[in-house]
């Protein structure tokens, strides 16, 4: 029998892994790999464009899962959600779907070097598609920095809707999500009680991640704490409400999650009206100078 070296075996494995869609999609390079499948950059030869092909491991269950994700995405037309172009089976039987190729970085890689306010504006843009999905009765259930892409033109996209919960879906069992960003009700496997507030918990985790290496701020800490409350009733009721609170912080207004003391109120007011305060101080100094030089 033919004797193959380790290098031969590795090369053949790469051949085997390459997606073969019977001609339409020509694989260019592997972009990402995880437990739920492999994502390839591919040339769509029919329409002459680059796409991302998500390919699941073998198995009918995986195919069902992929179809489900493709259907969820197809029902969510929003600039913050990657559009699906096509779905089906590869020649070898693996399920795939083709989606828009996002040129950019994952959130956890994209935020290095950004200021706190820039990060908070990105966070607000993460909340938008999440809120939109909630309005369509879809709960993402796996919100985390790795599932958010920041495009090269600043577009923010929420990815991986494969484990999303549909309001029309039947009962589900098992624990769904990523432990670090998972709401307690998800961790307990109580999927029936999972609702939009479970996603608010995930958003809280993302906000915490975004602020981890930034100067601490009590109002922002309070926003994270409220979003990640153990009891869902104590969290923000919607992603939009959480985004609005972050927006208030950015505008220098009081946030609903934090009660300020008078000193903090004054400090925030001065920070918000910095130019006016500086002008007033300038006036006082000028007055003092006029008094000193002309008042005698």
């Amino acid at each position: 029998m033919l004797e193959l070296s380790d290098r031969n075996v590795a090369a053949l494995r790469r051949v085997l892994e390459q997606p073969d869609s019977n001609g339409r999609y020509h694989p260019v390079r592997e972009i990402a790999r995880g437990g739920m499948g492999v994502v390839w950059e591919a040339d769509d030869r029919e329409l002459g464009r680059r796409v991302a092909l998500k390919i699941l491991p073998f198995g009918a269950a995986s195919a069902d899962w992929l179809c489900r994700e493709a259907r969820v995405l197809a029902g969510l037309e929003h600039p913050g959600i990657v559009p699906v172009h096509d779905a089906g089976l590869l020649a070898d039987g693996r399920a795939f779907y083709a989606m828009k190729l996002v040129q950019g970085n994952r959130l956890d890689q994209a935020v290095a070097g950004l200021t706190r306010n820039q990060r908070l504006r990105i966070f607000q843009r993460i909340c938008e598609p999440v809120e939109f999905a909630h309005s369509r009765g879809i709960i993402h259930r796996d919100l985390k920095p790795e599932n958010v892409m920041v495009g090269e033109f600043g577009e923010v996209l929420v990815m991986d809707w494969g484990v999303a919960k549909l309001s029309s879906g039947g009962p589900e069992t098992g624990i769904i999500g990523t432990p670090q960003y998972m709401a307690p009700e998800q961790a307990a496997g109580a999927n029936d009680t999972v609702d939009q507030r479970s996603d608010v918990y995930g958003l809280g985790g993302i906000l915490q991640f975004l602020l981890a290496d930034q100067p601490s701020s009590r109002p922002l800490q309070a926003i994270c704490k409220k979003a990640m409350a153990q009891d869902p009733r104590e969290r923000y009721a919607t992603a939009a409400a959480m985004s609005a609170d972050v927006g208030k912080f950015l505008e220098g207004e009081p946030v609903s999650a934090y009660r300020e003391n008078p000193f903090e109120v004054a400090w925030r007011w001065m920070a918000r009206h910095r130019t006016l305060v500086l002008l007033f101080l300038g006036y006082v100094v000028m007055r003092a100078l006029v008094l000193y030089f002309l008042g005698r």
Binding site: R13, V15, L16, E17, P57, F58, G59, A60, R94
Partner: peptide
Amino acid sequence: FRRIVLDRLREITADNEEFEKEAQLLLGIC
């Protein structure tokens, strides 16, 4: 080549479930 590998794999596995597991292994996913 892919077709041959998967055909041979179907032959030496007892059912679809085992085939899928072994195919995942060959394709390096698991």
